[in-house]
Computed example of a mutant assay.
Amino acid sequence: MKRRVRQELDEVLLLTDRFISDVFDLIDEDMTSDEMARYFRHKAPWNVEKHLHAIDMLFDPSLASSFGQQVHGYAKGAARDILTFDITPELRQHLNRVLVTPHRPRSSAPDSDDAGVIVDPQDWIDQETVPGVYVYTYPQYLITELLTDDGRTLYKVGASQATSRRLERQRRQTEVPEDIEIIRVYPSEDCFDDEAHFHDILKHAGHHHKTTRAGTEWFRTSLPMLDAIAEALDLATDQEG
């Protein structure tokens, strides 16, 4: 998907009268699906998560086989609305691809060769859409003086069905003086569940870092701790270096 088409879709997706636009408007607020659900006063995050999946499908129709009929309905409903707008032929062609993408049952589990491996973050960022749990920080937090004696510093732990696009949005935040540094991306087909496990373990270990300035999902932890959690979840093995 070309950058200018992605940027146009970023803009017009906010203009529908559907709930998907409300969810999309909160993506840059660095909120979990649980936090979004509480914001909308929903009792459970499942509806928010399905709309997040629909957003992923709108940007990349090739993800359609990963989602159920309800997600397809949300994505295609938004696509039909946007097609009534004054949009470029390129975006119109892209949305028509969304509309003609058939629903297929979820494919079988990933090849076992892909399990238990930490992928180089840059290899993932070079791809359009990747489901996974990601870890990033800011260079200032990697300065030796900010590290604790046990090697802990501040890391953001999040998840997305389209990791590269999510991280690209995080890069574009204007309220911080430096770009994020991507530390890890752990492959995960059930990224939101695995993200919740990461958060629970880190909180119980006393690594949660409460802040009103840097957003949510920040933890004062270490890479060995994060890799150990990933390995326990069968997401990663040791990485050299």
Rank of each mutant, 00 (worst) to 15 (best):
M1R: 09
R4C: 10
R4D: 15
L9D: 04
L9T: 04
L13P: 02
L13Q: 03
L14P: 01
L15A: 11
R18L: 15
I20P: 00
S21I: 04
S21H: 02
D22S: 15
D22H: 14
V23L: 02
F24Y: 15
D25R: 12
D25F: 10
D25Y: 12
L26S: 09
D28S: 11
T32V: 08
S33K: 06
E35I: 06
Y39W: 11
H42P: 00
H42A: 14
A44S: 13
E49S: 12
E49H: 09
K50P: 00
L52S: 07
L52E: 09
L52Y: 04
H53Y: 13
A54N: 03
D56R: 01
M57C: 10
L63I: 07
S66G: 15
F67I: 04
Q69C: 11
Q70A: 14
V71R: 07
G73Y: 14
K76L: 06
G77H: 06
G77A: 08
A78Q: 01
A79Y: 00
R80I: 09
D81L: 06
L83N: 03
L83G: 03
T84D: 09
T84R: 09
F85H: 00
I87E: 00
P89R: 00
E90Y: 12
H94K: 02
V100G: 08
T101S: 10
S107T: 12
A109K: 13
D111F: 13
D111A: 14
D111R: 13
D111Y: 14
S112H: 11
S112C: 01
I118N: 00
D120Y: 09
D120V: 07
P121N: 04
Q122R: 03
I125S: 12
Q127M: 13
E128W: 13
T129C: 15
V130Q: 10
P131D: 10
G132F: 05
G132A: 03
V133I: 03
P139D: 08
Q140I: 14
L142Y: 05
I143S: 15
T148N: 08
D149C: 08
L154V: 08
K156P: 00
K156C: 00
G158E: 06
S160V: 02
A162S: 09
R165A: 10
E168V: 08
R169E: 13
R169N: 09
E175L: 10
D179E: 14
D179C: 10
E181I: 09
I182V: 11
V185D: 03
Y186A: 01
P187E: 06
D190S: 14
C191I: 04
C191H: 02
H197G: 00
I201C: 05
A205K: 14
G206A: 02
R213Q: 14
A214G: 06
T216N: 14
R220M: 11
T221H: 01
T221W: 01
S222V: 02
D227L: 05
D227Y: 05
I229K: 02
L233H: 07
L235H: 02
D238Q: 13
E240H: 06
